[in-house]
Design a protein around this nucleic acid. Structure first.
Lengths: 363, 363
DNA sequence: GAGCCTAACGGTAACGTGCCCGGAGGGTCA
DNA sequence: TGACCCTCCGGGCACGTTACCGTTAGGCTC
């Protein structure tokens, strides 16, 4: 509408300064072959004219092609499938770049993950999106890959000091703190609480534990925390631990399951007839969890927003690879707190998404 | 890396069929001047070759320029400022289109809003993003604008049956339901609860009320709801109503403030010495609310994610204007539930955002 | 001063698509 | 038969930017 300001291009600058397009281009991109004074002159006029490069033309001319590998487990598909979908969606919307995605899968965290990661590194992709499980084992590999010029983006957890260009995950210690908050709101009398965790060598799992413990100490002095139960992502182990701890005297009245596969623990609770009698806060959302939340047998679950994690991870990776500027290195999302009352907003993400009126993941 | 599939363009199709670029172009875009059989042949080959138009080249050639007006109140800036920021951020990332944004402001909802909207319509923007306050008054205007070919996008609330191309807001009835859920978790004994609402003629405000009442009836039979208190967004009125209702016998032990400006109600509570004694669920986040949440005087607040609302609104508007396909017509976001424990993830959005490590709004 | 080198710059093709112009061929009508 | 129109198609320019090559001026060596 009101559009008095004509759009200004390289040509306009060249014309104004009576120099050629090539010189302006070189000056703007800090390429050799321009004298310092012409360079400054060009930059000054560009600034003054409010020059913004035409991204479409730039993309067309450069005709960039990038290859990105996504190395994630096949297990816990209710988390990693939407994460992959978020990546695909972002890729489909990416304009001006020929993006080749390679989805590499391994059975589960801790079995085949390092091999898959190592293999991906050898393929020399432009970027790799991955979940650093056991940080100490990933560190040397990641550091080497980063030195080789491969852009690494962590999802689900982080691997600091490896040269990775960024990480996207849920804010882990806050997740733990929210769980503590919810339990303290729902347990008024003095009692014990327990936490079931997956793999403490994964950075974010440790953070969740610390956040949970710290928040309990701060805001819920009437709740005492039992030693953490680490299942190492083995379902049978988790089941056994749950069965055992719930039969001790002074059994916990509140439980926080901080790992994504919470079913073994819930199954043990059900068999002991304790579901609904104790307060449970879980993690993520999947089909079997839905009825438990609806009936109030699980108080709440902390949704880790895998779709958004995937979307942001690829977005930031592309920002790094295309423009050479760094985005925010670390993105720590706020988890969604799902109760029975807002459950309906998230159900469409389970299985084949049929929901039409609810945005994919915002949710 | 592994890239056997060459990218295929219009030229390749033309070469394969021994026809000219012009003909392929006409066939692909369903323009006249092509015989049906050549047209089908081209379409078939394009399908077979997996032809995807080069968006960068397309954008460059079309050189589209769009004008979008954003008509929102100046009041309640803690909500509308980040919403505008979300729009600006999306606009900055838009590639291949010369986007002219025009931010039009009016003092407050219900005073000057219709005039501003009417004026914007007369300027014949390509699209208008606005908040439909009193639905009945907006309907005729919006319907006329839609018929004039202006793409209307609602934020914050909806105006159905007006020909608007979409709406982005928080899921209103679920917001109300969450508030009910939280109060029922924190009020164990039989008691009364009250709801303070803004303007019931705004669609989403009515929905919040209905969702709150329905959830109370479903899951909290021990809580009885008082008649809704409608302040018509007038601070003094809200203050008066709060002061009055809290001095009745059988005063409510739980309060849900469903409008964005909750301070008058909270001020009344404070003056009566009731803050901390009764459970309060508020809406949105702003500076004065932070200490109240930190100290537990406000149990929780439902964050309406203005930044995301703005982002999604413009994204969908551009999808509609650039490609001529319709996006999801209605997006209903899940509100974020903010407790004292996850408050820190949202504080950076208040005032001048200093936070570096937290993504803008995901939060 | 001839020969050579290099820094600095000019000119232009090309990226893939959209669109306009014009030409060929066939049909209609005076 | 010639003038005219319509359909279908080929050819080519333009969008803004970048990469490449050619050109010039000026300094250097011997």
């Amino acid at each position: 509408m009101t559009n008095p300001e004509k759009i200004v291009g390289v040509k306009d600058i060249a014309k104004a300064l009576h120099i050629s397009l090539g010189t302006v281009d070189r000056a703007l991109h800090d390429r050799p072959g321009v004298s310092p004074k012409t360079r400054d002159l060009v930059l000054k006029t560009a600034e003054q004219f409010g020059y913004k490069p035409n991204l479409a033309a730039q993309a067309l001319k450069l005709n960039r092609r990038l290859s990105v590998a996504i190395v994630l487990p096949r297990h816990i598909s209710h988390f990693f499938d939407p994460l992959r979908d978020g990546i695909r969606t972002t890729a489909a919307a990416a304009v001006g770049v020929n993006l080749a995605l390679e989805f590499i899968e391994y059975p589960r965290l801790g079995s085949g993950d390092l091999e898959a990661f190592r293999k991906a590194i050898q393929e020399h992709y432009d970027g790799i999106i991955f979940l650093p499980g056991d940080v100490r084992k990933y560190e040397p590999l990641a550091r080497k890959a980063a030195q080789d010029g491969i852009a690494l983006m962590c999802v689900g957890s982080d691997a600091p000091n490896t040269g990775r260009i960024g990480a996207v995950s849920v804010h882990a210690s806050v997740s733990g703190a929210i769980a503590a908050d919810l339990l303290s709101q729902n347990l008024t009398s003095r009692s014990e609480v327990a936490i079931f965790t997956g793999e403490l060598s994964t950075l974010d799992h440790g953070e969740k534990l610390r956040g949970f413990a710290a928040a309990l100490a701060m805001i819920a002095p009437h709740l005492t925390l039992r030693p953490a139960l680490e299942s190492h992502e083995r379902p049978r182990e988790a089941y056994r631990q749950a069965f055992e701890v719930m039969q001790t005297k002074n059994r916990p009245n509140g439980i926080y399951i901080s790992t994504a596969n919470s079913m073994p623990v819930l199954k043990a609770l059900e068999e002991l007839g304790l579901l609904g009698k104790i307060k449970v806060v879980a993690t993520d959302l999947f089909r079997e969890l839905v009825p438990l939340i609806e009936t109030g047998k699980v108080l709440a679950t902390l949704h880790q927003r895998p779709f958004t994690q995937g979307r942001v991870a690829l977005e930031n990776l592309l920002i790094y690879l295309l423009r050479d500027q760094k985005p925010q290195p670390i993105v720590q999302l706020a988890p969604h707190v799902i109760f029975r009352t807002n459950l309906c907003l998230f159900e469409n993400q389970i299985g084949q998404s049929t929901g039409e009126e609810i945005e994919a993941d915002f949710c």
